[in-house]
Amino acid sequence: MFIEQAYTKKFDIIKYLPIPIVFLFLMLLNYVAIVVMDIDVDTLMQQQIALKGANEVLFESLLPLAIFLVILLLWVKFVNKQSIRSLTTARAKVDWSRIFTAFGIWAVFSVATTAMAYFSTPESFEINFRPVPFAILACISIIMIPMQTSFEEYLFRGYLMQGIGIATRSKLTALIVTSLMFGLMHIANPEIEKMGYILLLYYIGTGLLLGIITLMDDGVELALGFHAANNLIAALLVTSDWTALQTDSILKDKSEPSAGFDILLPLIIIYPILLLIFSRIYKWTNWKEKLTGRVHLKPLNEITINQIGEGHE
């Protein structure tokens, strides 16, 4: 239902292409420039932070994605002639309780696991808290990070999930393609340079998780909450010199990163448990159909009318 509701008789896949093409081209151009010019992303970021300060660098890195969010929503409304509600959920209205539930669950988990890591290996961390920079960080993060994560969710789990699903008539194709695109979008992140391309498995796996909960729940609300919590807690709680979010957070991780079990743990244990929790809370059923079924290309109003008619026969 979530994918199908974007389809109308005036559906035109060409209208879906400009924003994804422009955004992904810019991401690719950034990566190519880094490779061709042999840019050390981590060193470059450290130089920028030394020159401008961590908060200004964070704001400048988030601003383009916030702008893209506004452009995407305006494009959906005025070019695709689709409501923001239908881009968000198959329900009659956006379920904010789902957003806050997912946010709360993942925020609590992130804080708890960080606390466990800190108390088990305190030598791997240092206290980085400074009241004024942290207060500025909090203001920037609370406003800008949800806009950044919302853009990524609306683009991949909303706009492209619906567009690819309708174009291919396959939910599974939409799920796989958007997950791969989401993972590869992070290829220029500093942590990829530090830990290697194997880290892309984590990003692709995270995209797969978010795609699954979107299809199973018929909306992006849970994905919006999860993604916002993940990035916001990371920005406020713990930073390091080798991640994309280098901030004036409470803690600084001094440990040497390694691409090993830390990558597999979320993918094979934590994410499946999270799926189980959501499935119990929201009573998900019919997994096979929702994740791998065909997309029926019939305008939603016709489906509804036909179903009502069949019910009276």
Rank of each mutant, 00 (worst) to 15 (best):
D12K: 15
I13R: 02
I13Y: 08
P18M: 04
V22G: 00
L26K: 00
L26F: 00
M27D: 01
A33Y: 07
I34T: 10
I34S: 05
T43R: 15
L44M: 15
E56M: 10
E60Q: 14
L63R: 03
I67D: 03
L69V: 12
L69T: 11
L72G: 04
L73F: 01
L73R: 07
R91N: 08
A92T: 12
W96A: 07
S97L: 09
A102V: 06
F109G: 04
F109E: 03
T121R: 14
P131C: 02
F134M: 04
A135C: 04
I142Q: 10
I143Y: 05
Q148N: 11
S150N: 10
E152D: 04
L155G: 00
Y159E: 00
A174C: 06
S179L: 13
H186K: 02
A188V: 00
N189T: 00
Y197G: 15
L199S: 12
L201V: 14
I204S: 07
D217T: 08
D218N: 09
G219D: 07
A223L: 13
G225L: 10
A229C: 09
I233Q: 04
A235N: 05
S240T: 10
D248I: 01
P257N: 08
S258K: 15
P266K: 06
F278A: 07
F278L: 11
Y282A: 05
N286D: 14
L291I: 15
I303T: 15
I308H: 12
I308S: 13
G309M: 11
